[in-house]
Simulated assay, not measured.
Amino acid sequence: MCSLGGVQLTTAAATALLEAGIETVFLSLGGKYRGRLAPVESKNVALRVAQVRRYDDLSFRLELARKVVAAKIANCGNLLAAYAKNHPEADFSDATAALSAGRSRAEGTADSATLLGVEGEAAKAYFTAYGAMFRGELQFSGRTRRPPRDPVNALLSFGYTVLLTETVGAVAAVGLDPYVGFYHALDYGRPSLALDLLEEFRHPVIDALTLSLANRKVLTPADFEPVSNDGVYLRADSRKRWLTFYERTLNTPFTQRGDAARPASFRDRVRLQARLLAKAMLGEAEYVGFERRRG
């Protein structure tokens, strides 16, 4: 459950949620993550010890980071390809070539600094093409944040924050420490592992949802308001509407091209990736990044 702004939660309601195993996430009206109320999580101390040992293994850390970034770049390309399939007039050849090269470079980088550079170059190519996909009043000319300076950036920033609460909950639920990551640097208060996992789902979930809501005119400029720091944010009533579409996106099952497994939702797949991370920490399985493969 997601609580926005000054929503009051009684002790009885909080107890009922905890007993039902339902996590509650608290966000400010602007979408800032405040914290979470969660049921008792895994008591698997051995897993957390293994996670810290893996963090100290520079080879393992770099290999996991490579897989996260490679999957992220692949998902950028997959979103462009999905749009081009329905809009053959769109020419994303330059961006597609850059993303393909970026993925190959990510898989073979020798150090984390180089990997950061590869991701940055891929993001530049992707977001240039992403802007060309907006066909209505809401337009996109590049990423801005802290604060977002236009409606599309407001949607992206808000969406990434909400999706981060999913990845924090998923890794904590399997017994991992959300703050010990392998691609994102450790810093006080930064849920680095949850941010690592977020990278694989940013584009297929939030970028795709933002594009859909803008092009179908579900959200228009009237749904946004300026704030004192020159930023732009979703209005309170529009955030509630956005959450309805977000939940639908997360909970709708879908199949993957080349995958015979039963349909699963994005929420299922976030949790599956968290379990796969846990197995990788214990040496029980090799980690494979999530890639959205459309049929």
Rank of each mutant, 00 (worst) to 15 (best):
N86I: 04
P88I: 04
A90V: 13
A90D: 14
A90R: 09
A90N: 14
F92E: 05
A95K: 10
T96S: 14
T96R: 13
T96D: 11
A97Y: 11
A98K: 12
L99W: 06
A101N: 13
R103I: 04
A106F: 05
A106W: 07
E107Q: 13
E107A: 04
E107C: 15
G108M: 03
G108A: 15
T109Y: 02
T109M: 14
D111E: 14
D111C: 07
D111T: 05
S112M: 15
S112G: 05
A113L: 15
A113G: 07
A113T: 13
T114M: 12
T114C: 12
L115P: 05
L115E: 10
L116A: 08
G117N: 10
G117H: 06
G117M: 01
V118A: 02
G120I: 06
E121H: 11
E121C: 01
A122Y: 04
A123W: 00
A125I: 07
A125P: 10
Y126Q: 04
Y126E: 00
Y126I: 14
F127M: 06
F127A: 00
T128H: 15
A129W: 07
Y130D: 06
A132H: 08
M133I: 02
M133T: 15
F134K: 03
R135G: 02
L138G: 00
Q139D: 10
Q139N: 03
F140P: 05
F140V: 02
F140T: 05
R143G: 06
R143Q: 10
R143M: 08
R143A: 00
R146H: 13
P148S: 11
R149S: 08
R149T: 15
D150W: 00
D150Y: 10
P151R: 04
V152L: 06
N153L: 11
N153T: 05
A154F: 13
L155I: 02
L155V: 06
L155A: 06
L155N: 06
L156Q: 03
L156T: 03
L156V: 04
S157G: 12
F158L: 09
F158A: 03
Y160S: 07
Y160I: 12
Y160Q: 00
Y160K: 05
L163P: 11
T165G: 07
T165H: 09
T167I: 03
T167V: 03
G169E: 09
A170K: 06
A172N: 08
A172G: 13
A173T: 10
A173G: 14
A173C: 10
V174P: 10
L176N: 01
D177F: 10
D177A: 02
P178G: 09
P178F: 07
Y179T: 14
V180S: 12
G181M: 06
G181E: 11
F182Q: 05
H184S: 14
H184L: 01
H184C: 06
H184P: 11
D187P: 01
D187C: 13
Y188D: 13
G189R: 14
G189K: 14
R190W: 06
R190D: 04
L193T: 10
L193S: 07
L193E: 01
L193D: 02
A194N: 05
A194W: 12
D196I: 09
D196C: 08
D196K: 01
D196N: 01
L197F: 09
L198K: 03
E200D: 13
F201M: 00
F201N: 01
R202S: 05
